[in-house]
Each structure stands twice: as C-alpha cells, then as structure tokens.
C-alpha cells in the first residue's frame, strides 16, 4: 500500500513534507492553543491565500513561472502577522478584534486577485484543500529547510515561550522581552502555515495546528507531554490522511482533518472512562 509513496518522486516528496508539517504544525499549535489564540491560525491562513492568489496572478499575467506562489503566500502571511500585532496594540481591550479584520481582509484580497487573473485552474483548488501531487522537489527542500529552522528556534526559545504562554505579565516582570518573543512566535506561526498549505490546504491548516493539541490536552500532565502527544497525533493524522487521500482520490486536507477529529473523539471518550475531565 505504501510502495507507491516510495516509488514515485512526487508522492515521496508529499509524504516526507507531510512528516515535517506533522511535527511543526502541532508543535507551534501547542502555544497557540494554551494562549487561546487558535483563531489566529485561521486569520493568517486566509492572508496566505491572498498571497498565493497574488502569486498565481503574477504568474499568469506576466508569465513568470519560476517563483512558487508559496513564497508570496509566506510574505503575505508574515505581513498579516505584523498587522495583527499592530491591531492588538491599538485595541488593547479587544485583543481578538485583529483576527476577523485580517481574516476578512485576506479573503477580500484573494477575491480581487482571482478576479484580476480571470479565474484559475485546478491550482487554486489544490491550495484550498491540499493535494498529494502538488509538492515539487523544490517545495520539499524549502519546507525541509524551514522546518529545521522552526524546530531549532522553538528549541532555543522554549523556556521563554512556555513562560510567556503561562503568564504574560509575570514573564514581563521577570525580565523577559515579552513583546519580542511574542513577535517571534507570530512570525513562526506565519511560516508554519505557509509551509503546511501545500498538503492540508489553506482552509484546513489551522485544524492541523489545533486538533492534535486538543486531543493531547486530554491526557498531558506537563507541557513536554503536551508537545509529545500533539506531535504523535499530528503525525498519525498526516500519515493516514495522505495515504487514504491518495487511494480514495480525496484532497488530503479533508482526510487529515477527519482523522484528527476521530483521534480527538477517541481521546475524549478514552479519558472520560479513566478519570473526570479537568481541562
């Protein structure tokens, strides 16, 4: 069943990329979930869509096929994250207000670029829901490089990220540069989203950052356990999702998310039989 994934280059790249995002998306997702910023991923994924639509439009309008739209997606995502932070600083009492503003802004821009390009072919569909055949060798190498960078940065700033996530005021008083660490965190989120869209798609990328974490929350006693289980459930969802998506001819975004939800439901039921829920 798995031999096609070894035999065919495009499937192998997809599979290996899937393994990478199965680590980085839940890893960053743990911080998003405990800080109650899950929706931030949704907002940034829609801005990424605008960036990709922009990239596809440039590609079509100027016949400039050498730059993958993933780069413009990444650029938009990072710019969007900066805007969300600015809005958070302006509306200090309405911290979540930046999210719908950026989300709708992203969709609005996407519609404009799609219209300017007079519609796209299946490419856009692949970006929305993910694809098993969309990952090129260059995409894979870029995502590999980014994943190494993201994991290294999280490892280096792990203690600061955890302290900040638990209590922002305390982190500031204890002498941590909370704003800078938070900004670094937002940029990392933007990069993870841009890296993940090839496989899970824009509309479902936030699910891969939050669902495995939600499942892991049910049985994690410590933060390290939360990260460990989140990655285990993330990997399981991605592997089963890509394989089943390929054999059933369904975009992997759909299968990955449905498998994540099944894992989440099992962990809820499993935990209920063991002990009363506290989360």
């Amino acid at each position: 069943m798995i031999e096609n994934f070894i035999q065919f280059d495009f499937l192998r790249h997809t599979f290996l990329t899937g393994l990478l995002i199965g680590v980085i998306a839940p890893l960053l997702g743990t911080f998003l979930v405990v800080r109650r910023l899950s929706l931030l991923a949704d907002a940034l994924s829609h801005v990424t869509l605008a960036g990709i639509a922009f990239g596809l439009f440039i590609e079509k309008a100027f016949v400039f096929p050498y730059l993958s739209p993933i780069y413009s997606g990444m650029a938009f995502s990072v710019i969007g994250s900066v805007f969300i932070e600015r809005l958070r600083a302006i509306y200090t009492s309405y911290q979540e207000l930046g999210i719908p503003i950026i989300l709708s802004g992203g969709v609005g821009l996407s519609v404009i670029f799609i219209a300017l390009a007079k519609g796209f072919n299946t490419d856009l569909f692949n970006y929305l829901f993910g694809s098993v055949s969309a990952v090129s060798r260059n995409d894979f190498l870029m995502i590999l490089f980014m994943s190494i960078a993201i994991i290294t940065i999280v490892f280096i700033f792990y203690k600061e990220l955890v302290t900040l996530s638990f209590d922002e005021e305390y982190a500031t008083v204890s002498g941590i540069h909370s704003k800078r660490i938070h900004f670094l965190f937002i940029i990392l989120i933007a990069l993870v989203i841009a890296a993940s869209i090839r496989i899970v798609g824009i509309l479902l990328v936030s699910a891969l950052m939050t669902l495995p974490v939600a499942a892991a929350m049910r049985h994690a006693k410590s933060y390290k356990q939360l990260i460990f289980y989140s990655i285990v459930w993330g990997e399981l969802s991605v592997i089963l999702g890509i394989i089943s998506g390929y054999y059933l001819s369904i975009p992997p975004g759909g299968t990955i998310v449905v498998i994540s939800i099944i894992i989440l439901l099992i962990s809820i039921v499993w935990n209920k039989t063991k002990q009363p829920a506290t989360v």
């Binding site: 405990v34 109650r36 955890v162 996530s165 638990f166 209590d167 929350m217 994690a220 006693k221 410590s222 933060y223 390290k224 356990q225 939360l226 506290t278 989360v279």
Partner: peptide
C-alpha cells in the same frame, strides 16, 4: 491563571 494549562508544579 488558566487552570487547564498543562504544566507540572516543577515546570
């Protein structure tokens, strides 16, 4: 604090 925060006393 967030009572559901998965951290041990040690952490």
């Amino acid at each position: 604090f967030n009572k559901g925060f998965p951290a041990t006393v040690f952490e």
